[in-house]
């Protein structure tokens, strides 16, 4: 562990101290946001609707659509949780924390495995790759998720593979493939299409380029400069 002591900190000027203090807080935020997203992944996997849980989202932020969020959370999409699983490990993080340590933008990639049983039928084994983009805000009781929906690349029946199979998002009532393409499957893999470079990981100057903290248009940065 580090050998830095309180005596070392005494040698700093007030300005130096404050710079190091803020930078340290920003680095702590990176770890806290990793834990926050890990916690969200755990909650996502077990799917128990209506269960009392620690709030992970900025539910009371004036720009957060609380009504839609609560409706989403209270709607069952499977008859029974038996055989259902949503495991999406988080890898490849790119996390940028604002200079004042109040907002953070991030993108993770994920190669996940799932089990899906809608009506108590034998579950379907699914492999699903995608990204977890997000805007995070620091509230009084810690970091929370403001925005960022799972962006699917593939979601295929295990044996069929990701070129031949694309399972739509599981909703009730079930949506069509066309509707799915307008939602979470918008940038999903299609064998007859050139892939869109979305989401763009946040760039180092993301908060300079997009000063409004809740803005998430940075995710589409690459579309401005697509390969011809």
């Amino acid at each position: 562990m580090t050998d830095i002591t309180l005596q070392d900190l005494d040698l700093l000027s007030e300005e130096e101290f404050e710079q190091i203090e803020l930078e340290t807080e920003r680095l702590m935020s990176v770890w806290e946001i990793c834990s926050l997203r890990g916690q969200a992944a755990i909650f996502h996997d077990d799917q128990h609707i209506g269960e009392h849980r620690r709030e992970l989202k900025t539910l009371d932020h004036p720009l957060f659509n609380k009504e839609a969020e609560l409706k989403f959370r209270s709607t069952a999409v499977v008859d029974s949780l038996e055989g259902n699983m949503l495991i999406h490990p988080l890898t490849t993080p790119v996390i940028e924390v604002s200079a004042d340590n109040t907002a953070a933008r991030a993108v993770w990639w994920s190669l996940g495995i799932e089990g899906l049983s809608r009506y108590r039928e034998t579950p379907m084994a699914i492999i699903s790759a995608g990204m977890v983009p997000g805007v995070h805000l620091k509230e009084e009781d810690g970091w929370k998720i403001f925005s960022g929906a799972w962006q699917r690349t593939t979601k295929n029946e295990y044996h069929a593979g990701w070129v031949k199979s694309m399972v739509p998002t599981n909703t009730r009532p079930q949506i069509s493939k066309e509707e799915d393409r307008q939602r979470l499957g918008r940038y999903a893999y299609q064998k007859d299409e050139i892939r869109k470079p979305v989401p763009c990981p946040p760039k180092k100057d993301t908060f300079g380029a997009y000063p409004e903290k809740t803005d998430d248009s940075w995710l589409l940065d690459n579309l401005k400069n697509e390969r011809q």
Binding site: I42, F43, D45, D46, Q47, H48, L81, E82, G83, N84, M85, L86, G115, S117, T122, P123
Partner: peptide, 8 residues
Amino acid sequence: SPLSVRDG
């Protein structure tokens, strides 16, 4: 397993 329930 196909019969198990995940529980966080």
